[in-house]
Design a protein around this nucleic acid. Structure first.
Lengths: 187, 187, 187, 187
DNA sequence: AATGAATGAGAATTCATTCAT
DNA sequence: AATGAATGAATTCTCATTCAT
């Protein structure tokens, strides 16, 4: 049962590792080496480096960043809704800092297509969630989404000695509550 | 009246343009072409691409980003202090979006030395300003600085149809006031 | 039947030619051209110019300079031993004058690692052979080896209208005999 | 009284230093730096690197290698004549090992014109001295000169832990005597 | 006489990608 | 399906030398 899927998986795994570390600058040589596969094999399977990159990133985004903003948006209680989103997203982003950093970096240089442009995806999904939650109400969801995004970015981009996911329960709760409160002020 | 300073300036100007567009990936060839100068001339004057980059960026940061956080920090009124910082930084960052994007991008990939690592610089200077302002008081300035940084980042990194510096007076005031209020909640 | 080993051999052959003519100064471009191969191909196969050089020289030294000093050292008769070494080494060195010149030249400039440093190799192997031959006896083998080396060098480095290998049988015998006799005086 | 001659001397001194260390590969930049002079100044004064090299080397050869072979050749006693030459040349060469190595190296690569081709000069002057000394006699001066040259070369080119000029009086005498005796065998 | 500025020509090396097997 | 071999196009950087002052 070896071969086929096997090598493809090897490549995908290796590609994540290497792309996360070096971004699009990563060379196919490095990836091939990490995957223990001939360089050409990448090309047989993915045609171009670009394509390999997109495939890999799509894969990861689907598996690890699948946001449930929409589900949470149904929650009636706004504060709870805010807290849920904040905690959930901070947790996920914080756990994937290297990948997130790389994606933001590439996004800023305009190297990403829409479907894998993480900042865009985050902002858009937040906006949609907020629009859904506040439905008829007159709330500036754009500003709100931006503020939420800013909170997330501040944890990734700015120096941070205590990544969110390493905090204990109480610290998390306290922080999330503060963020939620400061958000409500904007409404 | 030509010569001397001339070519150096040509190079510096061209280098900003090209580096802003492409980051460290920019080639010395491109820069030389943009500067209408032989490629070697860059090397005679700046020895390495890295060095040219650092020189150029330092220059720009000193001239265009010189923050007055410290001066503003002397302001007694906290709300006014917040509003001043927010408005001032948003204005500057917003006016230099392409450069800022590039610097954040390179910072995220770990390509910048401390002295030109913009996110670091911003966070640190905010922190110091806040420490100064709140002196004896028991305020979580780290959180505060992070939140401020997050606000700035949200305007640069997230999709933004209305850059801050293009807003009219009233829109700016409104926005800044909201941010300031939401900040005060964190104290 | 082409391909594979083919290009590698082409490169090796071309590299010898060019390196012999120009030493380490030879450019990979020249070598590639001489080998009728793309320049990159050298790098794919040998990674660096240095490495190509070392590989090539090791190869040649093994194939063409393999000294039998040790075997000859077993000979009981000292005069015969001397004559054998002298004739054999002069013959080989004389037949490879251009290569030998280049190697001595690079050696003198300190560009060679021990394993391909011909003067060193020659002196050391002579010394060992003499030590073996004279075993218990009290002979200044260092001086002896130096004198032998000097004889060889004098044929390579000094102007020489009649390279050893172009002499006829009788001339060779006479010359070798003289050298052997002069050597015995040193013992 | 500064200027003029001053700078020229600075350059010449620096050039020796650098050329001795690196041979013709030395760059004019290095030399200029060592001489604390602008690079162009070299060109003003010496037109090309080649020319600077030749000038410098001629200078040194005249001042430090001026052989007195001819004077010694008048000596009637052959053994004393031999010993004088050997001692004198070994002393001089040994004291200038780095320079001599460089010159032999460049000579071997065919980079020297006749007037500064040290191996050639040595061999020729030895030959002339011997021809003069042995005048009418039927001596193979070519062989003799070669053997002498070989002795000198063996001290420069082969590994040598005890350079001749560092030996004490007795060691020198012993060595020189041996060489002289072995030489006489060739006559 | 001396120099700061500038450069054309090359050098080693890397990279994404194609070809032949 | 997988790969070893090969490459054109770039990339950073160096060097001897000329120009203008």
């Amino acid at each position: 049962m070896k071969g086929l899927r096997d090598k493809t998986d090897q490549i995908l795994k290796a590609a994540v590792t290497v792309f996360v570390k070096k971004g699009l600058q990563a060379t196919t040589q490095e990836i091939a080496k990490e995957a223990d596969v001939a360089e050409v094999t990448l090309y047989r399977k993915f045609a171009t480096k670009q394509n390999l990159f997109i495939t890999v990133i799509k894969h990861v985004l689907e598996n690890q960043f699948n946001s449930h903003v929409m589900k949470l948006a149904n929650e009636g209680n706004t504060e709870y809704f805010f807290k849920s989103i904040i905690e959930n997203r901070l947790e996920v982003l914080s756990k994937n800092t290297p990948l997130v950093k790389m994606l933001i970096s590439e996004s800023l240089m305009g190297n990403l297509t829409e479907e894998i442009d993480l900042p865009n995806i985050i902002f858009t999904s937040l906006k949609h969630g907020l629009d859904h939650h506040f439905d008829e109400e007159d709330v500036n969801t754009e500003l709100c989404a931006r503020q939420l995004g800013g909170i997330f970015l501040s944890h990734i981009v700015l120096p941070n000695q205590h990544p969110f996911h390493t905090l204990d329960r109480m610290e998390k709760d306290k922080l999330v509550e503060k963020y939620a409160k400061s958000l409500k002020v904007l409404i």
